[in-house]
Amino acid sequence: MRIRMDIAYDGTGFHGWAKQPGLRTVQGELEKALNTLLIHRRENQMGAFEKLHVTVAGRTDTGVHAAHQVTHFDVDENLLQHCVGYLNLDGISALEHRLRHILPSDIAILSLSQAPEGFDARFSALERTYIYRIFDGNCKADPRLRNCVLTVRGSLNVEAMDNAVQLIIGLHDFGSFATANPGGTTIRKVKSAHWIRTIPENDEFRASTSTKEVARTKSNILSLPGMIMFTIVADAFAHNMVRSLTNACVSIGLGKRTKEWFGRKINTPLREGSTGPIEPCGLTLEHVQYPPDDELAIRAAAIKAKRSLDD
């Protein structure tokens, strides 16, 4: 049985998503908890066993957060029933109940469910939404949010940043701002991208630029008055892509770089030292979008093909 597991986490205390020897990671904590609850029982009753592996929609870097991350893992249905014990619950609900009790406090289970046929947390996804949050000199920074909002010295020109970032919408090679996985590519399709500064208005928030809302995100918990927010939606992201784009835009906002420079970096995908990533603390994965159930397998097959700029 394939199980979909939706989670949230504070990335401050993790060395990213991916499991690494000797380091605390989100994947490592999840797999440790699952194997404690499931595989340990199987080992006692059946001898030989294979540990569970968790697949994720998007790997986050060290210090990056997730308001809504999506994962999946495969488990024998009979093994799942061993989690029930004295609980008056079905196997999936029992596993969710027990996970909530043994996972560390910086990981939260949002939901557990049986995945529909063809579902793959990584390859079935249509798009991911990230938001980077910043306090600058034009707003009052809240020190309680220092782990999820970056404080920048000086005042940022949000309009200039938003004008520049419109250049990334569409299919581009982001080789100036990202590194490819082995055998992969830095070509990605950005569906929307914008910068705003939020302003309170009748208990809601409006933008100080032409963009009227933070699009495609389901969470506005961290939309405080005066905060600057970069929202970007793409079918997928290459390593360090969002943080490097953010850093470039902040340089523009501070008057250190220009829109023309940014355009040249998009048109010439080459890493040469001026487009490194910004600090991870302000970045959060907000949402992962999937197609209807009957299109999941088709989407997964299509996205596995290596893309080019001719796609």
Score class of each variant (00 low, 15 high):
Ile131Glu: 11
Leu23Ser: 11
Gly273Cys: 05
Ile228Cys: 01
Ser155Met: 10
Gln27Leu: 10
Gly63Phe: 01
Thr36Tyr: 13
Gln27Glu: 15
Pro182Gln: 06
His53Gln: 14
Ala160Tyr: 02
Ala108Trp: 01
Leu156Tyr: 07
Thr284Met: 15
Gly282Thr: 12
Ile252Trp: 06
Thr198Ala: 03
Asn44Ala: 14
Val288His: 00
Ala164Ser: 13
Gln45His: 03
Asn44Ser: 05
Ile252His: 06
His65Leu: 05
Glu159Trp: 08
Arg122Asp: 04
Thr211Arg: 08
Gly154Phe: 08
Phe237Asn: 04
Val75Thr: 12
Gln20Cys: 15
Cys249Phe: 12
Leu34Cys: 14
Met161Val: 11
Arg144Pro: 01
Pro277Met: 10
Gly63Leu: 01
His68Thr: 12
His65Asn: 13
Val149Lys: 04
Ala18Pro: 00
Thr151Lys: 09
Asp74Pro: 04
Ile169Gln: 08
Ala141Met: 00
Phe230Pro: 06
Leu126Met: 13
Arg144Glu: 07
Asp162Phe: 05
Gly137Pro: 08
His287Lys: 12
Asp311Val: 14
Asn157Lys: 02
Ala248Asp: 05
Ser155Ala: 15
His194Gly: 04
Ser124Cys: 15
Gly22Tyr: 09
Gly63Glu: 00
Glu213Ile: 02
His172Ile: 07
Phe135Ile: 01
Val70Phe: 09
Val26Leu: 06
His239Trp: 15
